[in-house]
């Protein structure tokens, strides 16, 4: 392996890691706040990308990528809140909401995916890159677009972290996640916070979708593989801390890049899962976890 190959693998891993971090954080936000796992998250990624394409692409409205991204992120925030009210809230007081929400969010994913298929068709599409051209760092050439993706993901995640730590709304969100009843007794509007958490998670998914769409081709089921990876990342990293899934995302991204080089595309998920199981046997709360939130 030459040094250049190694650098390429590392870079690929970092780009993957940044995308996984965005997706996994969105997933973890809903998981920690509502205590459920949202299987429609992958479809949110696809829907976000398609909405952005509809506004941005010259084949459609042609309003440019920035406008497309803005409409997509805001639109997905609203759609996420709607999905919460339609698919989660009716079961809120049911004791087995965890099981029920698996089915309702899977149903939502299937319905939304078919809507995408119906509206935009199954043909591959692509968003224009955020930045054109290449740049060179330390003697290796990389696309500016991929660097922009990584930078944007890190900035957004840092902003989200500060929001959860410092902003009153973010603090309230963490409070609800940690003790719903005590939060209610303080006068926190739990239902509204749940809707906002779901909306924020969907907006993060939309951003991830747009970034993926600017690197790879888009199709209606483009979210299912990233969803699987995000799930691995969340379980791998643990959700005790906001940063757990982020570190894990970069580890998983790098592992995947290395595995793809060493054992090939088809075997890398197998190796990834094997590593995950070994980690979970040794650290059941995830690599960076400390205690388990009971759901």
């Amino acid at each position: 392996m030459t040094l250049e190959t190694l650098n390429l693998i590392l870079l690929g891993g970092i780009v993957l890691g940044a995308l996984y971090a965005l997706m996994a954080t969105g997933l973890a936000l809903v998981w920690t706040t509502l205590g459920i796992f949202n299987f429609a998250h992958g479809t949110f990624i696809a829907l976000g990308a398609y909405i952005a394409w509809q506004i941005a692409s010259t084949e459609a409205s042609g309003a440019g990528l920035l406008a497309g991204a803005a409409v997509s992120i805001i639109g997905m925030f609203v759609i996420g809140m709607l999905v919460y009210y339609l698919l989660i809230k009716p079961f809120e007081r049911s004791p087995d909401i965890v099981v029920k929400s698996v089915i309702t969010t899977l149903a939502g994913a299937t319905i939304l995916e078919n809507v995408i298929n119906l509206v935009w068709g199954p043909r591959n599409k692509q968003l224009s890159p955020l930045l054109g051209g290449d740049m060179s760092i330390l003697g290796i050439t990389i696309s500016r677009n991929e660097m922009a993706v990584v930078a944007l993901a890190i900035v957004i995640l840092a902003a989200l972290g500060v929001f959860l730590q410092r902003a009153p709304l973010g603090r309230a969100m963490r409070a609800v996640a940690q003790n719903r009843e005590a939060a209610q007794l303080m006068g926190i509007d739990v239902e509204r916070l749940y809707a906002i958490a779901f909306g924020l998670s969907a907006a993060l998914a939309a951003l991830a979708g747009i970034l993926i769409g600017s690197i790879r081709f888009m199709n209606p089921s483009m979210g299912s593989d990233p969803l699987m990876k995000a799930l691995i990342v969340v379980i791998f990293g643990g959700i005790a801390r906001f940063t757990g899934p982020i570190y894990a995302a970069f580890i998983v991204g790098l592992l995947e890049a290395v595995m793809t080089y060493l054992v090939g595309l088809y075997w890398s998920p197998t190796v990834l899962f094997a590593i995950m199981i070994v980690v979970l046997v040794a650290k059941p709360e995830g690599l960076f976890g400390r205690y388990r939130k009971s759901v």
Partner: peptide, 20 residues
């Protein structure tokens, strides 16, 4: 009351005035 296990005392005291 178990409050919020992973929040600091200062954070916990700051919530109610904003929430209600």
């Amino acid at each position: 009351n178990l409050l919020f296990p992973d929040m600091t005392v200062a954070e916990t005291l700051s919530i109610a005035p904003y929430a209600s």
